[in-house]
Computed example of a mutant assay.
Amino acid sequence: MTVQTAAPRPAPPTPPGGPAGRAPGRPSPAARLVAVLRGGLVQVLLTVVALVWLTPTAGLFVSSLRDADDNAGSGWWSALVHPGSLTFDNYSAILGDSGITQAFWNTVLISVPATAAVVVLAALAGYAFAWLEFPGRDWVFLVVVGMLVVPVQIGLLPVARLFGAVGLFGTTAGVVLFHVAYGLPFAIFLLRNYFAEIPREMLEAARMDGGSEWTIFRKLVLPVGRPAIASLAIFQFLWVWNDMLVALIFAGSDAQPLTVALQSQMRQFGANIDVLAPGAFLSLIVPLAVFFAFQRHFVEGVMAGSVK
């Protein structure tokens, strides 16, 4: 007796271009979007938006080059008709003020260590939370994520009492420690999620070649995570450089940054704009220089996050 088995059912035909049904040679949605953004009309629109966005900065710079009477009598745009009235005397006066120059260097001494410490500690912690196994790792990471919802204002009074008890209140180190403490949760969360996207095969191959965890972190993880690290450094630096609330509370008279020094100069805006305008522009030009210096890495980090 012969048993007949059913013939295997033929597999359905594969759509052209693969399982997704995309026609051969058809660009992806991301490629089509990039092609549209490269169009001439979009470029013109983006140029107009950039010019509008930079108009306040240009106005601040022109105002900083005018004397107090000219600023009180007319708008900054009138100086474009009479450029001969512009002068750098305001900058000479403000750079000759020891209080302003000391406040500028105080801002540097606060922003640079606070940014460097957050980036280094967050990179180490992000790698540990992403790829190292240790007891309670997930619970500790949940605690770190939970700290993201704690507002800065809630910690001002308790931290001020703690710093006063240990002798850090009113010092540059106290301001730096506060910025580091409140910048780490977001930094760890950002870098941990970025490092977790690194293919496991890369790390396993490095371990099989005899690489230690420190070698893998230094020679593999850090180069791969450079866009995210650069983006974090930009955000942290801008936040610390432009901060006034924390510095107003924790910085003493000898450690006050430029934002607090300019705030103390404010009597009436029209009365001392010759001091405020050049001081504000000096405070603005450094973050702009930092952003433009690292903009390529920043764009790479944004695009990598959108792809992932």
Rank of each mutant, 00 (worst) to 15 (best):
E201K: 11
L162D: 07
A117E: 10
Q268C: 01
L220F: 05
P151G: 10
G270A: 10
L124K: 07
Q102N: 15
V145M: 14
I229P: 00
L177K: 09
A205Y: 07
P278H: 02
P278R: 00
L121Y: 12
L33Q: 12
V42S: 05
F195G: 03
P227Y: 00
A6N: 04
A160Y: 15
F186E: 05
M303Q: 14
Q102E: 15
S92H: 13
H179W: 10
A261P: 05
G170Q: 10
P185K: 13
G225D: 06
G136L: 08
F61T: 08
M244Y: 14
M244I: 02
L132E: 04
L284D: 01
E204C: 01
V180D: 13
I110V: 13
A187V: 02
T57D: 05
R26K: 07
S85R: 14
L222M: 09
V108Y: 00
R200E: 12
A30C: 02
Q295R: 11
K308H: 11
T2S: 11
F104E: 09
M202D: 00
I249H: 06
P257W: 02
G183T: 04
F269L: 15
D67R: 12
W241P: 15
A181Q: 09
N106W: 04
F88N: 07
F88E: 08
F237C: 03
S74G: 08
L288E: 03
P83K: 15
Q268S: 15
T2G: 03
G183K: 11
F61N: 01
S74M: 06
G211T: 05
Q153P: 01
G40D: 03
F134Q: 09
L121G: 11
A293I: 10
R207E: 14
L282T: 01
P19E: 00
T107Q: 03
N272L: 05
F217G: 02
V299A: 07
V159D: 07
F237N: 05
V144C: 03
L282Q: 03
A11P: 05
G40H: 09
P158C: 07
R207G: 01
A271Y: 08
Y127A: 04
A196S: 09
F269V: 13
V143K: 07
V81S: 13
P83I: 14
F298K: 09
T2M: 12
F61C: 05
V166P: 02
F298E: 09
G25A: 07
G252W: 12
M244S: 12
V34Y: 03
R161G: 01
I188A: 05
I100S: 05
R38E: 05
V286N: 08
E204L: 11
Q256D: 10
K219H: 13
V120N: 06
V144S: 03
P113D: 00
P223G: 12
E213S: 14
F104V: 11
G39K: 11
G210N: 08
T87R: 14
S98C: 00
T215S: 12
L51F: 15
A247S: 06
G170I: 08
A247Q: 04
R267C: 00
A93N: 14
V240K: 05
V62I: 15
G25I: 02
Q153S: 10
A117L: 15
Q153D: 04
A230T: 13
V44N: 02
R161Q: 09
L37N: 03
L124M: 15
L33E: 08
A228H: 05
W105S: 09
W214D: 06
V166W: 06
M208E: 09
L203R: 06
M202P: 00
E213M: 05
F292D: 12
G301Y: 08
A11E: 13
V246P: 08
G21Q: 04
L203S: 07
